[in-house]
Amino acid sequence: MTDPIRPALLDVDHLKVSFATDRGRVTAINDVSFRIDDGEFVAIVGESGSGKTVSLLSILGLTDRRTTFVEGTAAFRGRPILGLPDRELRRIRGKQIAFIPQDPLTALTPVHTIGWQIVEQIRTHETVSKEAAKKRAIELLDEVGLPNPAAAFGRYPHQLSGGMRQRAVIAMALSCNPALLVADEPTTALDVTVQAQVLDLLKRLRRDHGSAIILITHDMGVVAEVADRVMVMYAGRVIERGTAREIFAAPEHPYTWGLMASIPPVEGPRPHRLPSIPGTPPTPANIPPGCAFAPRCAHRFAPCAGLPPALSASGHDAFCFLDDNARAAGRAALFAAPETAA
């Protein structure tokens, strides 16, 4: 996986993000490291406040520079991008790294047409005529599956349905052929049948364009559908990392177990009660010391008051003190014999 000669597409090392708030500095992201290679489909999973979105926005320089402090390094194709002057970062943003936001209704400027907004992006990064940019925009809208793309070009965001808007947003993200697509909960605001369409589209685009995709989501089901590799985040840290196959076959962190077990199944036996994680995820302002999950964890023991050993550089690993036997036992208890309806 690690090619010593060619640098990774995106290499993030010891990323730390903190905010200035009324009550002093609050650390939202702590010690997050990962790398992504060309053409990979990586999912970052977490609940609200886990820092999954903030970590990527801070890498892209999209956080508020006056209130957000970003430490650590992030290199895009070997070139450090944290702390790059805005002028230089802008050449990468939108051209080589494109962003797909969560809610396509609020993510498009309401007063400009879809086509205008795509052409704007193309002409920001490339010197092409308006006509050529328009032609490309219509091709893109066609490619993402908008019926009648020429008409859609002249439409305003509010005139399209949610699914169509999300396709338009994806077309815009693709307009400069980016090497990396960052999608922040791209299907959360959509209905399931439309979500299925958009996930299929993302998979097809990865195949056709070879772009790497980072998908931020809270939905383990979506992850299972599309991702090659998975990072689970909790309270600002990566708490489990591995290939999708590894993580779904044998999740190692008690939080990941809980996350997977608490999804009500749509087939098979109906559990009498859903296994759930007690308590609520912490907000960045009140992350507990030591293992942040310990207060909600059924398996906590004395060492959890301290910080678990760092994740290994590669392979499947969890940020947890439990040993392999304890993990296997805990997992078995939760998944093997679900309590069925009485």
């Binding site: 892209l60 805005d86 943003r93 939108g94 051209k95 400009h112 920001t124």
Partner: peptide, 26 residues
């Protein structure tokens, strides 16, 4: 604070363009 401003910035637009064509118009 709106999402579309973040989108505009993510597109790599200049701050002046983000201000005049996206924020001001709306």
């Amino acid at each position: 604070q709106e999402d579309f401003i973040r989108t505009a910035r993510a597109k790599g637009l200049s701050p002046a363009r983000v201000m005049l064509r996206h924020a001001l118009r709306t």
